[in-house]
Amino acid sequence: MLANTFSGLKVVDFTQVMAGPTCTLCLADLGAEVVKVETPAGDLARALSPWIRGEGVPFLALNRNKRSVVLDLKQPEHLQAAQQLIAESDVLVESFRPGVMARFGLDFATVAARNPRLIYCSVSAYGQLGSSSDLPGVDGVLQAVSGLMSVTGSQGGEPCKVQVPVVDLVTGYLATISVLAALADRQRTGLGQHVEASMFASAIALQHTNFATYFADGKVPGPQGNAAPYSTPNEALRCSDGWIMVAAYHPARWEALCTAIGAPELTNDPRFHDNKSRLEHREALLGALEWHMRAHPREYWLDQFAAGDIICGPINDYAEVVQSAAFVEAGLAESLQHPVAGALTMPRSMIGAVGERPHARRAAPTLGQHTREVLAEIGLPSDSIEAVVASILQRN
């Protein structure tokens, strides 16, 4: 089972908010034992809205299957505990600005001298090298500087960002791929290495085909609403009571669409002869399609299009999504019990084999919930453990 793939793999997690925690979440869902090292103030995601009994939902969503240890790396005994934890780990993931880990003596070169098998993954805004590497960044800012916001929204409208932290999430997934590749390489060489995931580079990766098109024709793209820039009809079409997303640019499906809406003559219109012609006359095309489609509600058209094997779907809100057959039958949500927040419903891991998807082994931890447990596992004497815990409690 994929849920046990990395059983026994030890990961130490120095990340916070969303990009880095997405990477360690993927590893945890695959069975790795992830120890999340937090400052006494905790991961910043704990303070993000909304909250359930004081527990931040964004934190709860991205930190299942992990244990939390609180360490203040500015205190020598805490730093020594972190060094011991790293020495016994297979993977370290960190999301500080470049140079911060080095100031604590926890940079790759230093810790790899003690643990040469360590895979060390750095997640940052602009990468580990270059003049921009010191700049801070968050999802919205990276959507802006990467060009993503320049191609979202409607023509003539204000700049618009994607309303999910898409750059954070794809950065976390790319970081996971890098870690997995490094683990595979370690099987061959016996050695770890320093890998990275940059939010800026990840945002460019999201726009791979768009930038390829820009390099090809030199034309700076702009926002096109919900329309695909490379094909049509491949956009939302208005019905009498809502919208349907339709992708019918393939020649056979274009003909099927015209038949389904009762306008087979559109296939003979020279303006709509092929994809290139339709792109040149997109406004006229959409006007012709919607003139027919606004005569009936979306359920009528969904049935008609399904009969014609036309790729389409309703534009659902979240309440409709979680009630849909696709969501329910795939079992994409599960219930968890959190020690403070209580009963939770959360999206499940999306990593799995056919007919199998990992269940969460534990809910996201409370701050420092496992400090004593983890420090005992790495061999710290009980008096040293209590001194670490006491210093944290005194500070708080």
Rank of each mutant, 00 (worst) to 15 (best):
R188V: 15
L286I: 14
I310T: 04
H281Y: 06
G287N: 08
A184L: 14
F305I: 09
E299N: 04
T189A: 12
D241T: 03
L279I: 06
A284I: 01
Q193G: 10
R188Y: 08
P314K: 05
E235C: 10
R186E: 09
P314W: 01
H296V: 00
R298K: 15
K276N: 12
E265W: 08
Y230C: 09
V322S: 01
M245I: 11
A284G: 15
E235V: 08
P314E: 11
E290D: 07
A325K: 09
D317E: 12
Y300S: 10
T267A: 14
W291Q: 15
D303H: 09
A236Q: 06
Q323F: 00
A227Y: 10
V246W: 03
A252Y: 02
W243H: 13
A248C: 07
Q187W: 06
Q207W: 00
A216F: 06
V246M: 02
N268P: 00
G218L: 05
Y318L: 13
R238D: 04
L183W: 11
D269H: 00
V322N: 01
A212N: 13
Y214S: 08
G313H: 02
L266M: 06
K276F: 07
Q224T: 15
P251D: 04
A319I: 01
T209I: 10
E320R: 02
G225F: 05
E283H: 11
C312R: 10
A212R: 11
I261W: 02
E235S: 11
F272D: 03
D317M: 01
A326K: 02
R278N: 12
R298W: 03
Y214T: 13
